[in-house]
Design a binder for these strands. Structure first.
Length: 217
DNA sequence: GCGACAG
DNA sequence: ATCTTGTCGC
């Protein structure tokens, strides 16, 4: 793992061409893993969680939480170098191998087209989707109804979608991570959003690492 | 050169 | 991300 911004950017440029923009043949995910991290102040100490959700029922079927730390600072665009090592540890601690990763952040909707979701997908080989709460690009507000979306544009390119996951609620920003296309990603995210703005995968992972952070205090 | 910039 | 009380609404 690179430890300077310069090396990290070179790393992203090297890996970006590996992103596959089509799902595996017959892709029909049964288990989706949500990934998230919580921090203990500015200490660099953190907790990472992977939460496996049954796509059909929304039920939590497997989970792993690991304590870790990072020396890489928060730099927009270099998110993965801060969070991915611990997220990978959480993934390896799972009993299940998920069919798809749902990341808390961008995929292709990134200045170098290689956000956290792309990085996580490429290094694990798993299909991956990015679901961000804040866009790294411009968009027009989608219609108020759940399921409406508008293109997310960066540098003149369509890099993802602003997707309304509940009626009248602020959209989330969906983009391809790896072995994925935007229609498949949109449909899956919508399926995973059961009554809340964020997918159940993200909500479960978020809940798990905050709980672990309390125990750690 | 300056500002903006996922979590 | 995290620091933080009360408050409006279903």
């Amino acid at each position: 793992m690179p430890d300077t911004a310069e090396d990290a950017i070179a790393d992203q440029l090297r890996l970006a061409p590996s992103v596959l923009r089509e799902p595996p043949p017959g892709f029909a995910p049964r288990v989706a893993a949500g990934l998230d991290v919580a921090y203990l102040g500015e200490t660099g100490r953190l907790v990472a969680a992977a939460a496996c959700v049954d796509v059909e029922t929304g039920e939590l079927v497997d989970a792993a939480v690991v304590a870790g730390h990072t020396d890489f600072p928060y730099v927009p665009g270099l998110f993965a170098y801060r969070e991915l090592p611990s997220l990978r540890a959480a993934l390896s601690a799972l009993t299940t191998t998920p069919d798809v990763l749902v990341c808390d952040g961008q995929g292709l909707a990134h200045p170098r087209r290689f956000g956290l979701a792309c990085h996580a997908g490429v290094v694990t080989g798993l299909p991956a989707i990015g679901v961000g709460k804040t866009p790294m690009g411009r968009y027009d507000p989608p219609a108020p109804a759940r399921g409406s979306w508008t293109p997310l544009i960066d540098d003149g390119e369509e890099v993802g979608r602003a997707l309304r996951t509940q009626d009248g609620v602020k959209p989330v920003f969906v983009s391809i991570g790896h072995r994925m296309d935007i229609d498949t990603a949109t449909a899956l995210v919508l399926r995973l959003c059961r009554g809340y703005r964020q997918p159940e995968t993200t909500r479960a992972a978020d809940r798990l690492c905050r709980q672990a952070l309390r125990d750690l205090r």
